[in-house]
């Protein structure tokens, strides 16, 4: 009798001891949201939901993410979805034998350009392809620093710092396509060698040199040509092809500085664009006499990198991540 009582009394104690060490077994896995439209400049965070059979929410479980079509939308190890091209795909969360899927839709190009947030915040650089340039230089293959893509805002700040170090304090910012931007530096007066002249920011040639008799006679009998340059930094993941039917003019290039925005809006600054490249487009104009209209130089004496070097922008560590 006494032994039976002791066993009976021990049973609840044993039961309590075993309950404290019970393992919660995931029974269901879900993903939120189950269907979503993702646009390139707005990555979307997917949230996994793990529950037991009783409905108890389990946290801290390592969920694996994958995308059925990474060319449409990619997903990182934390469930952050980045849209890359228009289309539809499925993002799958996996935990042991459990699976949960979400449908990701990336809208087409026309839908992207109709985005009211984008249009309302940024003027667009002449496009869809830029006007024919004099020379082009690819600054950076991608904006990647280490293993993480870089937000466009950091590239914008880096280019701005390089311009300021080179003595350029005026530029205009434009949107470029659906997920890029362009920075137009102020038009500058340069010599035949590509170096900025003393009258760098003036189109006038009078007063540039000391006024001597020799200088007077030179101005009286010889034409006073002028050479000008505009550097446009374009950050985009699209291939950059010039619109050869649209040749930029010096007057239009001056207008680029007036019509652009001062900075990137927050939507673009936080945008991460895998595969984006930084291009430097150089527009060089030559005016044979004071009365002639400057025309775009098709074959410059100065190559693309040398334009940047002589403008004081290259090699400029600030331009690289």
């Amino acid at each position: 009798m006494r032994a039976s009582v002791m066993i009976l009394c021990a049973l609840p104690v044993a039961a309590l001891a075993c309950g404290g060490e019970r393992v919660m077994v995931p029974a269901t896995l879900s993903v939120y949201p189950t269907a979503v439209t993702v646009i390139p400049w707005q990555p979307r965070q997917m949230v996994p939901g793990v529950r037991t059979a009783e409905g108890t929410v389990l946290s801290g479980r390592a969920v694996t993410w994958s995308s059925a079509n990474p060319e449409v939308a990619a997903v990182d190890s934390n469930g952050l979805v980045i849209a890359l091209s228009s289309g539809e795909t499925t993002v799958t969360a996996s935990l042991d034998t459990l699976r949960a899927e979400a449908t990701i839709t990336v809208p087409g190009q026309t839908q992207l350009s109709d985005n009211p947030i984008f249009l309302a915040s940024m003027p667009q650089f002449p496009g869809p392809q830029p006007p024919q340039w004099t020379t082009r230089f690819l600054l950076a293959e991608g904006l990647v620093t280490g293993a993480q893509p870089e937000p466009l805002g950091e590239a914008f700040d880096r280019i701005g710092d390089a311009l300021r170090r080179a003595g350029v304090f005026e530029w205009a910012t434009y949107g470029f396509g659906d997920s890029g931007f362009a920075m137009v530096a102020r038009l500058e007066h340069i010599g035949d060698d590509g170096f900025p002249l003393e009258s760098r920011w003036s189109a006038a040639t009078v007063g540039e040199r000391a006024f001597t008799l020799q200088e007077y006679l030179r101005r009286l009998f010889v034409a006073q040509p002028g050479r000008y340059r505009v550097i446009v930094f374009v950050v985009t993941h699209h291939p950059l092809v010039a619109d050869t039917a649209a040749q930029a003019t010096e007057r239009a290039a001056r207008g680029w500085l007036q019509a652009g925005a001062a900075a990137l809006p927050a939507e673009l600054r936080s945008l991460v664009v895998p595969g984006a490249r930084t291009h430097a487009l150089v527009y060089e104009f030559f005016r044979p006499t004071e009365d002639a209209e400057p025309v775009l130089v098709v074959e410059s004496r100065t190559q693309g990198p040398h334009h940047l070097i002589r403008a004081g922008l290259w090699p400029e560590a600030a331009l690289l991540p």
């Binding site: 009286l220 009998f221 010889v222 034409a223 044979p288 006499t289 002639a292």
Partner: peptide, 15 residues
């Protein structure tokens, strides 16, 4: 004449 010969007026010499 001297100015025109030295290209003072460029393509607009006729003007």
């Amino acid at each position: 004449i001297v100015q025109t010969m030295f290209g003072r007026y460029g393509p607009q010499a006729s003007r």
